[in-house]
Design a protein around this nucleic acid. Structure first.
Lengths: 110, 110
DNA sequence: ACAACATTTGGCGATTTTGCCAAATGATCA
DNA sequence: TGATCATTTGGCAAAATCGCCAAATGTTGT
C-alpha cells in the first residue's frame, strides 16, 4: 500500500527492505563485521557480545532469514558465515556517509 | 550495552546502524532509488507514493537526519537529493542476496 | 539413561517505529 | 491582507522490534 501503481514494484522494495532491515541493528552489524573475517560458532560470537545468549541467537536467526548469512551444524555447535562478501561494501559507504556528515558539521562551526 | 569491552566500538556500530536503519523501509528505499536518478521535490515524490504527504515528509526527514540525503528550498518547494552516490552499491548487493536466496530455493526443489 | 553443554524457541513487557489526521509554518500571488 | 499551495510538526493509536527469562531441543561423554 505504499508505492503507487505497481504491485510487483511494491513487493520488490519490500524484499530489499527486509535484507537491509536485517542489518539495521548495532549488534547484527557487529556480527556481520565479525563474520566477514571468517566463520564463527555461536559460542564465539556470544563471547564477544554483552547480551543474553538467546538474544544473540535471535539476531543470528534474523540475519539467516534475510539470506545474508548461513549456518552449518558441526557436532553440538553451529557455525555461521557470510553468504555474500559484497555486504562489506555497505560498511565502506556507511563510513563515507559518517565522514561527510562530520565534515558538514565542521563547516557549520567554521 | 551490547558489544563487550569497547565503549567506542559500541558507539561506532550504533552510528553505522542509524544510517542503515534509515534505509530499512520499503518507502524510504524507493525514495533513495528515485533520488539516485536525480533530485526531486517533495511533491514529485509524494506523487509516486500512495501514503499521506505527512508520512512521506517524515520518511524524508529520517533519511535527511541520517545524512544520506540533503534538501534545498527553492521558492515554496523543497528539493531533495542523494549526498553519497555509493548508496547505490547497496542495491547491487541486495539484489545479489535476493538472487542467491532464490537459487538456494531452486536447489531444494530439484 | 543421565548429566552437561550448545543453541533455539516461546512468551511477555518495554521501547521504537509507522502512518494518519489536524494544525502550524512558509512562500506566492491576487 | 487574505487565499492558496507546499511542506513540516504534534499527537496518538496500531504494529513491529528488542531483550530477558524460562523451557525445549539436540549433542556429547559417562
Amino acid at each position: 500500500m505504499t508505492i503507487k501503481m505497481d504491485q510487483k514494484k511494491q513487493k520488490l522494495f519490500e524484499a530489499r527492505a527486509k535484507i537491509i532491515k536485517a542489518m539495521a541493528h548495532p549488534t547484527r552489524l557487529f556480527i556481520v563485521d565479525e563474520l566477514s573475517k571468517g566463520e564463527k560458532c555461536v559460542c564465539e560470537i556470544t563471547g564477544m557480545i554483552d547480551a543474553d545468549i538467546s538474544t544473540v541467537s535471535k539476531h543470528l536467526s534474523v540475519l539467516k532469514a534475510s539470506g545474508i548469512i548461513q549456518d552449518e551444524k558441526r557436532g553440538s555447535q553451529v557455525y555461521y558465515k557470510l553468504k555474500c562478501s559484497c555486504i562489506l561494501g555497505f560498511f565502506n559507504c556507511v563510513e563515507n556517509v559518517i565522514k561527510t556528515t562530520a565534515n558538514d558539521h565542521k563547516k557549520l562551526i567554521r
